[in-house]
Simulated assay, not measured.
Amino acid sequence: MSTPEPRTTATATPCAEHDSEEFRLWSVRPRQAGVMDISFTRESAMWHAEKYPHLIPVSRMPEGQWEDARPAPTGPGEYHVEWAIEVHANGPEDAARQALAKHRDPGSIACVYDVSRHDGTSRAVQVDLNTPEEVNGPLRDRPLPVDVKQLDDSALYALMAAAEEELRRRTDAALPGAVRAAVLEHLEQAGTPVPGELTSVTFSTTHYDNGEFWNESSATANFANRTHLELDLSDDGELPGMLADHSEWSELSGGELLTVQFDPPRLYVS
């Protein structure tokens, strides 16, 4: 008995509706990946794709590129949902734990999903639920695990201290990955080649009316080949808030330096 061909999935950029008459089949088998050099009608391409799960129908767009020709998923039924995130970790288990923490964090904006029909008859569409309220509901409306009105003052203060300590631990654990991602994204958007292995990033302090804070707009990225780049990371979505929280917990007086190391991930304040 032959072993059945495993179901293989692939994600292509969703295409706009168009009038192209040229359809081909995109094989997603590892050894046969690519667009087949045979033209089909729309009906024939869809029939082959439904019969052979490793084939995806694609159509030629006016600009010349091939796009997934399957319809967008709609209506009730079984769906396949993919969620992915990039993390800097010490190993597979650490990476999985970081991803789990991100997914469970009610304040996380990592809420973008690729959704398609489970049977492979639709292309994948991107669903962005990037506000925590859309995923978890307003935080003020979520039930607390304990009835704080029943706690005496000492227990309430202990709960506050424990919650702040846990938030600090999570921020410290996530900060190296967030800083590394912000640096690499900044270089990519600026079209600047990465000069080598990124080893650490250093932040100095800056003064605001309510105290001293780490200055994300003047970060120094340090590379293994002794190259140093001055970067403005203030446009990164999550990083400024994480650095502000770390600043308040560190009780800065001015003149300190924060060094974020990546291998292994560590934070140093000097």
Rank of each mutant, 00 (worst) to 15 (best):
S2W: 04
L233N: 02
V35S: 04
A95Q: 02
P62Y: 05
H80D: 13
V112G: 03
V81I: 14
R168F: 05
T199P: 06
A72M: 13
P4Y: 11
G191F: 07
L239I: 01
R180T: 04
D152K: 07
E188V: 06
A72P: 03
F213E: 03
R140Q: 15
D263L: 13
G237Q: 12
R29N: 02
L187N: 06
S116L: 03
L257A: 13
E133D: 10
A101F: 05
E21C: 05
S217G: 11
S59R: 14
D232R: 05
S154N: 07
S2N: 10
A16M: 10
D141H: 07
L243V: 00
E43H: 07
D236E: 01
E93T: 10
T131Y: 04
S44C: 00
V115P: 01
E248S: 01
A16S: 14
R42E: 14
R180W: 10
E238T: 09
W66D: 03
D128K: 12
H228E: 10
N210I: 11
L198K: 06
N90I: 12
A178V: 11
T13Y: 06
L144S: 13
T171C: 09
H54V: 10
S20F: 02
R29T: 08
D235S: 15
G34R: 04
D172T: 09
E256S: 02
L257G: 01
D119Q: 07
E166A: 12
H186W: 10
E197V: 15
D172V: 11
L167N: 11
L257R: 15
A174Q: 13
H207D: 12
N210D: 15
M46A: 12
D37N: 11
E21S: 14
A174G: 10
P6V: 09
R42Q: 15
E22A: 07
P195L: 08
D119F: 11
E212M: 13
P57H: 06
H48C: 08
H18A: 12
S116I: 05
L233T: 02
T9V: 14
D128Q: 09
M36F: 06
Q150P: 00
R142T: 02
E134D: 00
E43M: 06
P73G: 05
E248H: 00
D37M: 09
A124S: 15
T259V: 09
A72N: 14
F203R: 01
I38R: 15
D128W: 08
G64D: 07
G107A: 08
Q150H: 09
T11V: 15
P143F: 03
H207N: 13
R123W: 03
A95K: 07
R70V: 03
G177R: 04
H186F: 07
A84S: 14
R70T: 05
T121I: 02
M242C: 00
G64W: 06
S108F: 00
G237Y: 12
D152E: 05
V58T: 00
T131C: 00
H48E: 12
D236S: 04
W249N: 04
Q32H: 11
H48W: 15
A158V: 00
S270L: 03
T220I: 09
R7I: 12
V135M: 11
Q150D: 11
R60I: 09
A244K: 04
G107L: 08
T9P: 00
H246A: 08
A162Q: 09
A69W: 03
A155W: 04
T259Q: 10
V81T: 06
E22S: 11
D68W: 06
A155Y: 04
